[in-house]
Design a binder for these strands. Structure first.
Lengths: 260, 260
DNA sequence: CAAACACTTCGGCCAAGACGGTAGTGGTTC
DNA sequence: GAACCACTACCGTCTTGGCCGAAGTGTTTG
């Protein structure tokens, strides 16, 4: 009757590292097979099967059978939104290891976040748009100005997705940069445009995006963003046996500070 | 290095029913003592103490010592946002037991959601505002129109919280009604105004709000909302032996009188 | 048909952690 | 001072649930 128990059920589901890894991997909107998910989770296929069944039963994942394989994806944008929320808090968390994040330099630079762009580039774009008064952003919402609408029109970005009286811009707190980037229909349109015009490309088996030479030029001329691609171009996909038991004991003294 | 493990840590924390109940209880922005939280969680104080330490270490709760008691509250609005996300998905979940929710008729009708109103009334207000073109809402954002700004000015609702160029309206999916209500600065201003003018009152020890006769009249004239208060006016606070065990021993007379 | 493949079910092992009893610490009241 | 209260630390018990090996189902390939 209280919502408590219900949110506990969902949270407990996400609370297992293996399942959390699976969900993270699906955060970019792709659909992956059970075997692929077993790999990213770092568990045996039969273990993954159990996890996926639970996630499916709980309504977090949608399933599509195709021949002898089963494709999974997040059941809805609401699930992605929930995971975003968790990421933000998880990153916020105790100051202990905020930027311990060495690996994944490519990810930090540019990646997809469900249906829009995230990372340094995305934050830079958002900053620029705000600075030019093309969008208004705060922690509670976003809004495209008339100037912004013209800007996108000239650029050829397709905003038809949103009807004329619709609001369709929202901020999404970037978990690596800790600043907002553009999400919602506007964010999705930007990503779509960027992929369409070869500004960025998907990295295989990853949420990461690489900025192409064309992209570097366009970002500079269009948004005034200095292209500073990650130094390490290769950036191996760590096979990640991960699943390191969460044993690291956290010790904390001043966690009272109200960090708004 | 992947965010997976980190979100798993946070989610696992929320994934325990006792802790989830504590967090739920704090969702209205109040600050509660360890003993009160032990009660809502349905566990012994020493167990609660452990849970609270974990939540604090993880940065989900903020602590304020006062004499011999310790007051806890959510560490930031981001935590509330995360819990909102979980609630939405938890409610969405498997269709099997969607509206099994009999108890809590009062809660369904009107309640607080961190810093704004939720429930049937809040959804009705949001609907009305949209219908009158005072706000624009979709799943990704909200926006106050000029007409809406005038409306609130006339009504005497204080929107100063938000600077003039700021966006400050956002939708929040109501987990009982499954439709959006107003959150963000606008939502907070409405709740503040409603409490200030005795349209609604807090129910002791609960997130529930009761609409006063004044409120019924004002909601009708101002928003055109037919007051349909929950049939069962008394609606006992179920003492909820809930999570069994201890509970019965602890009897509370009147904690929580903390009337924000 | 047999073999390879994708995936699921079953069963037993094992560790994490939730629980409250007991025993403390520090703050408040009389 | 003593009594009392809110809260915390430690400890042993016990349940939950993640894990993989082995075996089974259904699908595609040769």
């Amino acid at each position: 009757m209280d919502p408590g128990p219900k949110i506990a059920q969902v949270a407990a589901l996400v609370g297992d590292p293996a399942r959390a890894n699976m969900l993270s991997a699906l955060m970019d909107g792709r659909t992956l097979t059970a075997t692929e998910l077993a790999y990213v989770a770092g568990v045996a296929p039969q273990t993954a099967s159990g996890h996926l069944a639970k996630l499916g039963d709980a309504g977090l994942l949608a399933l599509e059978k195709q021949g002898r394989r089963r494709y999974f994806r997040l059941a809805s944008p609401l699930v992605a939104r929930m995971l975003e929320g968790l990421m933000v808090v998880a990153q916020e968390g105790p100051a202990r290891q905020r930027n311990l994040w060495r690996g994944g330099e490519t990810l930090r630079h540019a990646r997809t976040c469900y249906d829009h762009m995230a990372g340094r580039i995305a934050v830079a774009i958002a900053d620029r748009m705000v600075q030019q008064s093309f969008v208004l952003l705060d922690e509670d919402g976003g809004q495209l100005t008339d100037a912004g609408r013209s800007f996108f029109d000239e650029l050829g970005v397709d905003l038809r997705l949103a009807s004329k009286r619709r609001v369709f811009c929202r901020p999404c707190l970037d978990w690596s940069e800790r600043r907002p980037h553009l999400a919602g229909a506007v964010g999705a349109a930007i990503l779509h445009h960027a992929l369409e015009h070869d500004w960025v490309e998907h990295v295989r088996d990853s949420r990461a995006l690489v900025v192409t030479p064309v992209g570097v030029r366009e970002l500079a001329t269009t948004f005034g963003i200095e292209g500073t691609p990650p130094k390490d171009g290769r950036e191996e996909q760590v096979p990640s046996p991960s699943r390191g038991r969460v044993s690291d004991r956290i010790r904390f003294s001043q966690w009272g500070a109200h960090r708004q």
